[in-house]
Amino acid sequence: MSLTWTDHVTGRRGFLVVDRLVRGVASGGLRMRPGCTLEEVTGLARGMTVKEALHYDPAARYVPLGGAKGGIDCDPRDPGAYGLLVRYLRAVRPYVEACWTTGEDLGLSQDVVDRAAGEAGLASSVQAVYPLLDDADAARRRLADAFAVEVDGIGLDELAGGCGVAESVLTALDRAGVAPAGARVAVQGLGTMGGATARFLRRAGLRVVAVADIKGTVANPDGLDVEALLAARDAHGTVDRAALRPGDRELAGDAWLSADAEVLVPAAVSYAIDPVNQARIRARWIAEAANMPVLPDAEDLLAARGVTVLPDVVVNSATNAWWWWTLFGDIDADADEAFAHIRRALRALVGRTLGRAETDGTSPRVAAHAIAADRLPAIAERFGWYG
Rank of each mutant, 00 (worst) to 15 (best):
L159Q: 05
A138E: 14
V113C: 10
Q127N: 06
V211H: 11
E167D: 09
A117Q: 05
E104V: 00
S168P: 09
A123R: 11
A120E: 09
V208G: 13
Q110M: 15
A139H: 09
A172G: 02
R141K: 15
A210G: 14
G177M: 12
G182P: 06
G205Y: 02
A117K: 03
A228Y: 06
A181I: 00
G121A: 01
V209M: 12
V96G: 02
T101E: 15
Q127V: 12
A172C: 03
Y95K: 05
R142F: 13
D145Y: 02
D135Y: 06
V112Y: 05
A138K: 08
T102N: 08
V211D: 14
G182Q: 02
A148E: 12
A146L: 07
P180E: 06
V165M: 04
N220A: 13
L229S: 05
L122D: 03
A231Y: 01
R175C: 05
D222L: 15
A148F: 02
I214Q: 02
G103D: 15
T102Y: 11
A128C: 12
D105T: 07
D111E: 15
G182K: 02
P94I: 04
F147H: 13
V185S: 08
A128H: 11
L108Q: 05
L106M: 14
T101P: 13
L133S: 03
T192P: 01
A179R: 05
G121Y: 06
A116P: 08
G195A: 00
R199V: 13
A136R: 07
A179K: 01
I214E: 10
P221T: 06
D213G: 02
I214M: 02
C99R: 14
P221F: 10
A136M: 07
L190K: 00
L156I: 05
R203H: 10
D174E: 15
V149P: 03
W100E: 07
V209L: 13
R175H: 03
E150D: 13
A228N: 06
L201W: 10
D152E: 15
A204E: 09
E150L: 05
A117G: 12
A120F: 10
G195D: 00
E97P: 00
G162P: 11
V129P: 04
D145E: 15
L106Y: 12
A166D: 09
A176F: 00
A136Q: 03
G162V: 07
A116M: 05
N220I: 11
V218I: 13
L133G: 03
L206A: 10
V187S: 13
R199D: 14
W100T: 03
D135Q: 04
N220W: 13
R93L: 12
R140Y: 02
G118I: 03
P94K: 02
A123T: 08
L206F: 08
D152N: 04
L133T: 03
A128Y: 13
D134K: 10
L159T: 03
D225R: 01
A139R: 06
G164T: 07
Q188T: 04
C99Y: 14
A210S: 15
S125H: 10
A116G: 04
A198R: 09
C163Y: 04
